[in-house]
Design a protein around this nucleic acid. Structure first.
Lengths: 109, 109
DNA sequence: ATATATTATCGTAATATTGCAATGAAACAA
DNA sequence: TTGTTTCATTGCAATATTACGATAATATAT
């Protein structure tokens, strides 16, 4: 069906999977890494940096923006995209809670 | 196209996105959380715990197993699934490197 | 006004993902 | 053997994702 049954899961589980889905494409990982690296960015840079077509990059940026992980300011004819620090930090806490679960030693495998 | 152009990205970027994709569905998040919680598990438990049909759970388990995040031992008629601790730890390091990037303060937004 | 530059949106094609009913495979019990 | 239990696999339908050409929208420059 291609449709996740989100209503049967907790808000936390849905939130984790939504953030994870955003990182589930190497282009978005590359975009975020580049935004961290230069800390100020316009989309044109990304198109030449990443190697995908401009509409494709624009679409990936839109997804990251909808999730709140980045924000963009219009500056003349171009748009300046950056990491949204507060939301990134918040996301990191949620993901860390999931990734850093303790593993006890009485495993059967 | 639905096809990610993995060849234009680094191994690290592809690895991050592959792990993230595994966490990109709430059912797999729930499965992993449950495996952490009880530390010994058979698939039957998960079907009643999660609420999806048995073939669906089995498919999600297969994906997690293929990535190496969990492993399964056959025990009579049932299969015992657990977290693969070494691989989980390794994945955590890779994800942390991505999530914990420093944000300098000369942002434009 | 016209041209240029930059980004967003639309439309479409190709592929991937999700979910489940039906069925298969393997181990065990009676 | 025959049935039961448990999990995997197959096959299919519905939806989502990815990518990009064409085009629109906006701001700036000449």
């Amino acid at each position: 069906m291609g449709l996740a049954k989100t209503e049967m899961f907790t808000d936390e589980q849905n939130k984790i999977s939504m953030f994870a889905k955003a990182f589930g494409h190497p282009a978005r990982v590359a975009i975020l890494q580049h935004l961290f690296k230069i800390d100020t960015c316009i989309c044109g840079d990304l198109v030449s940096e990443i190697g995908l077509a401009q509409p494709t990059i624009s679409q990936h940026l839109k997804e990251l923006k909808n999730l709140g992980l980045i924000k963009g300011n219009v500056e003349g004819t171009s748009v300046c995209y950056c990491i949204d620090k507060d939301n990134w930090s918040n996301m990191k806490d949620i993901m860390a809670q999931f990734l850093d679960q303790d593993i006890s030693s009485n495993s059967c495998c």
